[in-house]
Design a protein around this nucleic acid. Structure first.
Length: 944
RNA sequence: GCUCGAAUGGUGGAAUGGUAGACACGAGGGACUUAAAAUCCCUUGACCCUUACCGGUUGUGCGGGUUCGAGUCCCGCUUCGAGCACCA
């Protein structure tokens, strides 16, 4: 029987589906294991060979865990809302739901061919009402919550209202947008509108007037992680800063917990570091500066309190609320002009042009330690959104302050011994402090830092500032709240209506609030988001139903929200939904959640480090606070699989001809490299006939060959259609089968590393699979197995494999385990092994990697159950034991010869035997032996 | 600028401080074959010695160090990649 992979693979894929082999249920008698991939956005281009890399890796792990006796949850679904489907809809008028469904079907078809162990009964699609019901529900819960800093936990908003009614803001430590202060009586006197506005200041999902990243090209606002270098990640359109009323999520409230949580999870250092950077915790001091000749004072934030004696000016952000207050009449015109100019600049221009600009406000602040007057300047190098939007400038020890001081001719006062500030500032946090003013020059009990190290000086200043009530120790975070509205159609609608302008939640019983049909996917003429086109988009509070907009009377029928939620909304809690995907009473049942708890192994690309992986950690922490998720961190182990890049091939056309010259000879001609479809190139050899047929203009092409072949050049580039380097897994499966594809993708290199797809090595994997197949059958293709006792060599070989593969899967080192399979099969072939027991072990070991052939062979071995339900083979050390051990004998660390010793020989016996050896004497040759080192089972080193 | 990674043959990549280059590709040679494909066997870091065998030198980005012994550990660089970035 020949190895007919297409028939075998079809047969088993069908049988798995029919038998529900991968259906999983909660089972308290078995330990659980939850494996998850980041679910894909089903794009129109379908899968290329890079997509399945992570799925294969996690499928191997899932299958392995199952064979180890775990009840494994390995689900798959689709992140179905997104911009490309909507952009396509704008162009073609095709409903995004239609294109999305088509794309999903295509993905499913491709995925099924690879032989994954997904439980498709648990599939989720973020765009389905049954799913986004719970996205909307979570949003409402966040709206109905505030964050109590003293408990470090989300609380129901009702408890805050109660507190306001009893004590006003007194004694509340809440995460908030702005510091507010009012009494219980004042609270009670506020109008509904005012109360709503005040509560927005505390809610976890809130509406706020904030600076947002507005992208004209996409017609929507974007989150910080969706903007890179001042342009949108999708489309590369310019992004500007604009003040808009938007829904936001108070992610910043969770900054410290998001940071602390990193210590408890098994993620790569680089991802953790990226998240730490993004959260940007910075420990420093807030100091209050009085304004000269005024009752006014303001607060600055600094991490270098020790440099207080080097302050020679202050700087405010142009957007700072302090600017109008601190600008003197004389400076007003100049300041206004400057602020105006800054406002007009887009983020992009600000980044591109970093020339020093600024203007003097006319006012002076008083250094709280020295009493000295320092001028207050305004400049856009200070950001309004960070710290207090105001800084104390120390040009000697901060490069930005230095550049500013040089430009405007301000004083630069060095504070660290031996530093040279004539050319640049000395920013390093080391050295010995100097130049503190003498105690008698400043206020009584003045601070002197001379002679201290920078670190000591920071601590001493902090202490002094606290004790003298000049400010306080403060921790700042760079992490901002997430902007949660998008002016787009293809997303979750907000379950919100506007009761006389006050945002109000539709009752929970009305969820899901379904996305309405619209006639056009563009913004309306009045600039409203696309949902402005929806006719049936008003909320009737009498009947609790969605009704026609024409019925809006603002008495019982109100307009519904026109924004939709961003992409990360639907992907933030999908892992919980997989636990209980058909539940219509809740996101996830208590039982399912307490059984599956959290994702044990999560695989996905590192590009989600500052987006999805922050948002879903935040989202889960919130659900944990309100008792809907049993663990605080959703993903206990994370592996970032690398990207598969394209490997492009080139042909070289001689200028102004239709003649192509092979790589090795191209230097003899003047040539232009041209991308050629990698699918008509094999091992860098061009299929000349296929090339002629590829494009009409090449039908008459001529070739200059080397050794009768046309050799193509190559380069590693992004996998993309325009480079003709996209490889479709279907094509590979057609030619080699899914098992070969799976083995080869793993063999390509370490999972976490990015690497180019290179078909050159795939034959090796395919040969290996055939070779394994041939071990089970004789020359005529008949099954030929022996029931004899396995030989010692066979057992040794197979147990070496058990140990290696078990160890490698644990480390996700799949490329080395594929090698181990090859070695073992070679060894067993050489031994002409056809032993039923040994081959049974081999089949069980390879089942996670190449499940189709494993099932087929497992059946041929006479088993009636799926190999998925077999046990993982047990490793026995005893089979690896040898009679003797070969030692390398080294002299001064250089290996000269080898010797065998009995297995249990003691080191002194070994020493004696080596020294008695003739060869050893030749190397010693009269020199004194200083030392003899015996490394058990490996080496004897004689030091002369 | 700060932070985190990485660097090994023609290529992808292996190596708990202990024989560097496993395994695979490619290349070269051979067997089988009318021929090709497929399959199998041998060689394959560089250099030197040798008719051949045997052998030797050198070798993991660069420079030091620790060690009997370093691709691996320590110190100092170079280059590449990633993240953050007027974040005070």
């Amino acid at each position: 029987m020949e190895y007919n992979f297409s028939e075998i693979e079809r047969k088993w894929q069908k049988r798995w589906a029919e038998n529900g082999t991968y259906t999983v249920r909660e089972d308290a008698s078995r330990p659980k294991y939850y494996v998850l991939n980041m679910f894909p956005y089903p794009s129109g281009a379908g899968l290329h060979v890079g997509h399945p890399l992570g799925y294969i890796a996690s499928d191997i792990y899932a299958r392995y865990k199952r064979q180890c006796g775990f009840n494994v949850l390995n689900p798959m679904g689709y992140d179905a809302y997104g911009l490309p489907a909507e952009q396509y809809a704008i162009q073609t008028g095709q409903h995004p739901a239609v294109t999305t469904t088509n794309n999903i079907n295509r993905y499913r078809e491709q995925l099924d061919k690879i032989g994954f162990s997904f439980d498709w009964n648990r599939e989720v699609r973020t765009c389905e009402p049954g799913y986004y019901h719970w996205t909307q529900w979570a949003f409402q819960k966040m709206f109905g919550s505030w964050y109590d800093n003293s408990l470090q936990k989300a609380q129901p908003i009702e408890s805050l209202i109660r507190h306001f009614e009893e004590k006003g803001t007194e004694g509340i430590d809440a995460a908030r947008s702005e510091e507010l202060s009012f009494t219980a009586d004042e609270w009670k006197a506020y109008s509904d509108r005012e109360k709503s506005d005040i509560l927005m200041n505390y809610r976890i999902a809130y509406q706020g007037e904030t600076m947002v990243n507005w992208c004209q090209g996409l017609g929507t606002v974007l989150a910080n992680d969706e903007v890179v270098d001042g342009v949108s990640v999708r489309g590369g359109f310019p992004v500007e800063q604009k003040k808009m009323r938007q829904w936001c999520l108070r992610v910043s409230a969770y900054a410290q917990r998001l940071l602390d949580g990193l210590e408890t999870i098994d993620w790569s250092d680089s991802i953790k570091e990226t998240q730490r950077n993004w959260i940007g915790r910075s420990e420093g001091t807030e100091m209050v500066f009085r304004v000269k000749d005024s009752d006014f004072n303001f607060t600055i934030f600094t991490t270098r309190a020790d440099t207080i004696f080097g302050v020679t000016f202050m700087v405010l952000a142009p957007e700072s609320e302090l600017v109008p207050t601190l600008t003197t009449a004389a400076q007003k015109a100049e300041v206004d002009a400057y602020v105006d100019r800054v406002k007009k600049r887009t983020e992009r221009e600000r980044i591109a042009d970093r020339r020093v600009t600024g203007v003097f406000s006319g006012s002076y602040a008083i250094n709280p330690l020295t009493g000295e007057d320092v001028p207050i300047w305004i400049s856009d190098y200070v950001l309004a959104g960070y710290g207090t939007g105001a800084i104390m400038a120390v040009p000697a020890h901060d490069s930005r302050d230095y550049a500013f001081a040089k430009h405007f001719g301000l004083e630069i006062r060095p504070l660290i011994e031996g530093c040279d500030v004539s050319e640049e500032s000395f920013d390093a946090k080391d050295g010995i402090m100097m130049n503190s003013p003498r105690p008698d020059q400043v206020r009584e009990g003045g601070l002197v830092l001379n002679g201290l190290t920078v670190k000591e000086a920071i601590a001493a200043t902090k202490k002094y500032v606290e004790e003298n009530h000049l400010g306080r120790i403060k921790v700042n975070y760079r992490l901002r709240d997430a902007i949660f509205s998008r002016q787009r159609y293809w997303g979750e609608p907000f379950p919100v209506y506007y009761r006389n302008g006050i945002p109000t939640m539709v009752p929970e019983s009305c969820l899901p609030l379904e996305l309405p049909e619209i006639s056009e996917y563009k913004p309306t003429e009045t600039g409203e988001p696309p949902l402005g086109h929806a006719v049936k988009w008003a909320f009737d509070t009498k009947t609790d139903t969605v009704v026609d907009k024409s019925l809006i009377d603002n008495v019982t029928v109100f307009p519904l929200e026109l924004n939709t939620m961003p992409g990360f909304a639907g992907s933030s809690a999908y892992y919980l939904r997989y636990m209980d995907p058909h539940n219509d009473k809740g996101l996830v049942s208590k039982e399912a959640d307490s059984y599956w708890k959290c994702v044990d192994l999560y695989l996905g690309g590192s590009e989600h480090a500052t987006g999805h992986l922050i948002y879903s950690r935040f989202w889960n922490k919130f659900l944990y606070d309100i008792g809907c998720s049993v663990v605080e961190e959703p993903f206990s182990k994370l592996i970032n699989q690398g990207m598969i890049q394209g490997r492009s091939n080139f042909v070289y056309r001689i200028k102004d001809t239709n003649t192509f010259v092979s790589l090795g000879l191209k230097n003899q001609y003047d040539t232009t490299p041209i991308h050629v479809d990698v699918n008509i190139v094999s091992n860098d050899v061009l299929d000349v006939e296929a090339f002629k047929a590829w494009r009409p203009e090449y039908s008459t092409a001529e070739f200059i060959l080397e050794d009768g072949k046309y050799i193509c050049g190559w380069a590693v580039e992004k996998m993309s259609k325009s480079m003709f380097n996209v490889v479709n897994p279907d094509v590979v499966i057609e030619k080699y089968g899914a098992d070969t594809l799976r083995m080869y993708e793993m063999f390509l290199g370490p999972l976490e590393q990015s690497k180019p797809w290179d078909t050159n090595g795939i034959d090796g994997c395919h040969r290996f699979i055939r070779k394994m197949w041939n071990m089970f059958t004789d020359r005529d293709g008949n099954l030929c197995l022996s029931d004899a006792e396995p030989s010692r060599d066979e057992l040794k070989s197979i147990h070496k494999l058990i140990r290696k593969v078990t160890e490698d899967i644990g480390n996700f080192s799949y490329n080395t385990s594929v090698s181990a399979f090859m070695i073992c099969v070679n060894e067993l072939s050489a031994l002409k092994c056809n032993n039923r027991e040994v081959l049974g072990i081999l089949v069980r070991l390879i089942a996670p990697f190449a499940p189709h052939i494993a099932e087929e062979l497992w059946e041929m071995l006479g088993n009636s159950t799926s190999v998925c339900d077999s046990n993982w083979p047990e490793f026995k050390e005893e089979y690896l034991k040898e009679d003797s051990v070969t030692y390398s004998i080294s002299f001064n660390g250089k290996t000269r010869f080898t010797m065998d010793f009995p297995l249990d020989a003691a080191s002194d016996q070994i020493q004696a035997a080596v020294l008695a050896n003739e060869k050893a004497q030749a190397y010693i040759d009269g020199r004194t032996i200083r030392k003899v080192i015996v490394v058990p089972r490996k080496i004897v080193n004689i030091v002369l």
